[in-house]
Simulated scan of single mutants.
Amino acid sequence: MSSGGAWLVVAVPCAVAGAASFGMASVVQQRATKQVPDTRALNPRLLLTLVRKPIWVASVLTVIVGLSLQVVALAFGPLMLVQPLLVTSVLFGVVYSAWMSGRRLDRTIMVGSLSCVAGLSAFLLLARPSGGGDLIERRTVPLALALGLVFLLCMLAASFFPGEIRVIALALATGVLYGVTAALMKVVTSQIRAGGIAEPFQHWVLYAVCVIGPCGFLLSQNAFQQGKLISPALAMITSVDPLVGVAIGVLWFGEYTVSTPAVLAGEVLAGITIIGGIAVLTHRGEHLRRETESAESDDPSGRITWG
């Protein structure tokens, strides 16, 4: 099978199926986090409380299915193809949330979600990613420092700002960690193909995945717990994750994109569309937060999940 055929027959369906799994798991996890006490970011006590809920444990198994599909997709397609396809989990999440809540789809939420998906799809179409390898090149330090700085700023913002700003900060930090994890997973898959299942245990990359991945997952639970809507957090995570993947693909793996002035202008517009979609979802989330505060004060145990 040609490389292009593998992308179409294996990588794309696996990436989309993985997105559906992530969308369903995220909705279930958000509903579960509303039923336990709030905790600080990166406090493992949250997971220790959630693990007692069977529905949350089932959602983790769904995440594992999604990750397995992502690994298969990464094994057959470039990082910059697979990661953007995962952003469709936003749409899956919005639909699942409305269905599980017995509510109609909110038009504003759908507009914001579609903007995120359309913006990232346009970015991928314009960039036309190709090339690259499976080994991390030496040009890693500048991007690693930049991502580390973004992560630290997000954690500071989550500590000092309330409401949807905290949610977006936590989700942005999660997206950064997820994007790095996905990039490192591509290295792990290449090591397995080259030397067998035992090969990754001889390199630092697997152990980095085992630290960064769980930290990202814990932050995602913090973000879901703090938000009234699942959509802003999920949109931020699923948008930042592939964008970080694109940057890593170019700077670490030597992948390349079309970079004419017209294409770059289109990519900027696509980025603005993504940001606009997230802004719409965030504004809607803050509006519903204010709208439901009085109801929650009357019934503290009845937190409302809007979708």
Rank of each mutant, 00 (worst) to 15 (best):
M1T: 13
G5H: 13
W7E: 12
V12P: 13
A15Y: 11
A19D: 00
A20H: 00
S21I: 11
S26A: 15
Q29C: 11
V36S: 07
A41E: 10
A41Q: 03
L42R: 02
L42S: 03
L46A: 10
L46E: 06
L47W: 04
L48S: 14
T49D: 14
L50N: 13
P54K: 11
S59C: 12
T62V: 02
V65K: 01
L67D: 05
L67S: 09
L67K: 00
L67G: 15
Q70Y: 07
V72H: 02
A73K: 06
A73G: 12
L74S: 07
A75K: 08
L81H: 05
V82Q: 00
Q83G: 15
L85M: 10
F92D: 03
V95H: 07
M100Q: 09
M100T: 14
G102S: 06
G102L: 07
L105E: 05
V111T: 12
G112M: 14
C116S: 02
C116G: 02
V117A: 03
A118R: 00
G119V: 08
L126F: 05
L135T: 15
L135K: 05
L135P: 02
I136L: 05
R138L: 14
R138I: 13
V141P: 14
L143Y: 04
L143M: 09
F151M: 14
A158L: 04
F161S: 12
R166S: 07
V167M: 06
L170C: 09
L172W: 10
L172S: 13
A173N: 06
G175Q: 10
L177F: 06
Y178F: 12
V180Y: 02
A182S: 05
M185I: 11
V188D: 04
Q191L: 15
I192E: 01
R193D: 10
G196P: 13
G196V: 00
I197W: 10
H203Y: 04
L206Y: 04
Y207T: 03
Y207I: 13
V209M: 09
C210D: 05
V211I: 12
I212S: 10
G213L: 09
Q221D: 00
A223N: 04
Q226I: 04
L229T: 07
I230S: 15
S231Q: 10
L234K: 11
A235F: 01
L243A: 08
G245A: 04
G249L: 09
G254W: 00
G254S: 03
Y256E: 13
Y256D: 13
T257Y: 02
S259Y: 04
T260P: 06
V263A: 04
E267N: 07
V268L: 07
L269S: 08
A270R: 00
I274N: 03
G276H: 03
G277H: 01
A279Y: 04
L281Y: 08
L281H: 06
R284E: 12
H287E: 13
L288K: 09
L288F: 11
R289L: 06
R290H: 11
E291K: 15
E291F: 11
E293C: 14
E296M: 09
D298H: 15
S301W: 09
S301A: 15
I304V: 15
